[in-house]
Nucleic acid binder design. Structure first.
Length: 204
DNA sequence: AAAACGGGGGC
DNA sequence: GCCCCAGTTTT
């Protein structure tokens, strides 16, 4: 068992699960798009309103982004821009992808508001692909613990793909998000209660 | 490589 | 009042 598998095992045993449990591609995609630069508790409330008002891609594609959607998703950051992106992405999925959320990184990142991180969240969470979504938590923690050493998130992803076992990759991001929010925080990390402090290069 | 987008919550 | 947050896009 290498270090990453041991770190993952201990964190899963010690931490609560990530609150997002949806697997439907539409819900995974819209949640991931809403979550950009927004805390997940806020995103969960906003996403629930979005799904109630627009239960599927077709209904979202018919919506008016400025008048309707922007008001429904108020609360998340960049909500006006996200409203436009959500509706335009839904329309592209209807017109170009046969109404199904794409299951490859190129088609996903061709959607407005979808970058590599969101694409990898969709691929791993909705489609079970063995990919790692690198966000600020994964990037910070991986470097802080000495698993990788780079300022470039894309290089972090490539390095992690070499050291994270395939069966762990899809759940790596949500595990690190919970870890990063509660213990391995950006500032004032709580190393005194960290389950993997003995494996960390920068424990306090 | 850096700036812009941006409302909400913690401290 | 200041800083950070499940990033993406444009310059």
């Amino acid at each position: 068992m290498n270090d990453v598998a041991e770190i993952y095992r201990r964190l899963k045993a010690a931490l609560p699960p990530h609150p997002f449990t949806e697997r439907d591609p539409y819900r995974v995609l819209t949640f991931a798009m809403l979550s950009t630069r927004t805390r997940d508790e806020v995103t969960l409330e906003v996403a629930a309103r979005l799904w109630e008002r627009y239960p599927d891609i077709a209904s979202l594609a018919r919506a008016d982004p400025e008048e309707e959607v922007a008001s429904v998703i108020r609360g998340v950051g960049f909500h006006r821009q996200k409203a436009r992106n959500l509706v335009e992405a839904a329309r592209l999925i209807m017109e170009v992808h046969g109404g199904r959320v794409p299951d490859n990184v190129d088609d996903l990142t061709s959607l407005p508001g979808v970058g590599r991180k969101v694409a990898n969240v969709v691929l791993s969470t909705a489609f079970g692909r063995s990919v790692i979504a690198v966000d600020t938590h994964v990037h910070r923690i991986s470097n802080r613990m000495g698993l990788v050493s780079t300022d470039n998130p894309r290089e972090t992803e490539e390095a992690l793909m070499r050291i994270v076992p395939p069966e762990i990759r899809a759940d790596f991001n949500p595990t690190m998000v919970v870890f990063g929010r509660t213990i391995c925080r950006p500032t004032r990390p709580r190393c005194h209660i960290c389950p993997v402090a003995d494996l960390c290069e920068r424990r306090l």
